[in-house]
Design a protein around this nucleic acid. Structure first.
Lengths: 234, 234
DNA sequence: CAGAAATTTGACCAGTTGGAAAAATTCTTA
DNA sequence: TAAGAATTTTTCCAACTGGTCAAATTTCTG
């Protein structure tokens, strides 16, 4: 199971490293100095906030710059264009986001393996909701910038894990059902708590909408999938 | 069970009907002529396309106007501002979107009742994916324009249906579990097929990503929830 | 068909947006 | 510490944006 590095197309990647002595040294390359690393992080952090809320078109460089506490031209010194920031966020997010799925162990015990996958995905929704929303936003737009990653890397990974699930089904460890839609349903239910957080909180109200909601969700999902996947009783 | 009319705040609603003989007769009011009805529909249709993809900020009046096959000023003749179009889409969508939940019948047979709810929600994802995405987009932005509807009307409706589910649980008709998270999980899994359609198709690939995917999803979800909710065996 | 009402168009505008250029400032390091 | 590199600020711009306005055109209605 090779750890499939998710990597988006990046035109600049092929360029001959650019002239390093020109007027804008930081622009084309990866961070060279301490300040560059730090500021780029600040920018990415701010950009995550804005992009995850407004989507690519809806977000403005000004908003990001303000959130990052710097002027627009200054921001553009580190990322020469809006698109660059977005792409960076996308690749980083994809990588982290898929880790739990990658970590499903075909040699593990099926039920605990699935249970812990659900739990990890839910924890990600709790701890990194903006990344989830960023991804969701890109999906809603039809994934114009990552469609090829989805249909190659992601598809490959899911195909692989679907086979694992199928083998578990064949061995009678879990109920025989569609492994792809099983994975979709785990994605959907867990990411829902990040993407639709406002709704969840509004509906649960003051009483149950607090931090405890993730615990409740975990308990519920565990029950749902546990019994939903229980192999047929003899 | 009163049919709770979802209605967003609309400042114009209170105004004294505006002077009808002025230069801009169509603007403030509801459609009066045939042309107005027709064009408004064309605009709303086009706007749904754009807003559901780009979100409120990301969408431009020009895009909508072009999609509607008319000039921007012409469009603005029917909807004096961008926000009006969006609000109209929102209220209409909310109303339709919640119908299946409203229709859950407390006197019905629990299992078929839930099964048909899931099926209807899934059908809506298949037949009205853009409405689903419009809603999702608003959620991602923190639901700034409908948060009050969510915490009043929607919460009320869900509270009511949660009670129904609880009564079914008490009577041993379905497994005892959290009714709110049960509803969330149905929303999440069914809407996933509209909101994340690109991803679903990319992962399923040419082979299984065709129209059949909704049938497969329906079958899977039925199994998952059916067995997941099966009451404890004696 | 004439006049009025409704609709459409073209010109325009002020504010925003992504981004470029260059000057000004602040580090580094020989 | 002075020169060179890195960073930041100021100024600017062309395209885009939401929206206005009056004139032109089309569609009713008596």
């Amino acid at each position: 199971m090779p750890p499939i590095k998710v990597k988006m197309l990046d035109k600049d990647e092929a360029k001959p490293a650019a002239e390093t002595g020109a007027k804008k040294p930081a622009k084309a390359g990866r961070p060279r100095t301490r300040i560059q690393r730090e500021k780029q992080d600040v920018i990415l952090e701010a950009a995550l906030d804005v992009f995850s809320r407004e989507g690519f078109r809806g977000a403005t460089i000004d908003q990001i710059a303000e959130a990052a506490g710097m002027s627009k031209p200054n921001l553009l010194y580190y990322f020469p264009r809006k698109e660059e920031i977005y792409k960076r966020l996308m690749t980083e997010m994809l990588d982290v986001w898929l880790a739990p799925l990658r970590d499903i162990d075909s040699d593990g015990d099926p039920v605990p393996e699935i249970r812990s996958y659900i739990r990890r995905k839910l924890e990600m929704s709790r701890d990194f909701p903006r990344q989830s929303r960023l991804f969701a936003n890109e999906m809603l737009q039809g994934a114009p910038r990552i469609i090829d990653v989805l249909s190659t890397d992601l598809k490959g990974l899911v195909d692989e894990k679907a086979k694992v699930l199928e083998s578990w089904m064949e061995r009678g460890k879990i109920r025989r059902t569609d492994p792809y839609h099983l994975i979709f349903s785990i994605w959907a239910t867990t990411q829902h708590y990040a993407d639709f957080d406002v709704q969840v909180r509004a509906v649960l109200g003051k009483g149950r909408g607090g931090e405890g909601r993730f615990e409740d969700a975990a308990r519920f999902l565990e029950t749902l999938f546990l019994y939903g996947l229980l192999p047929k009783q003899p």
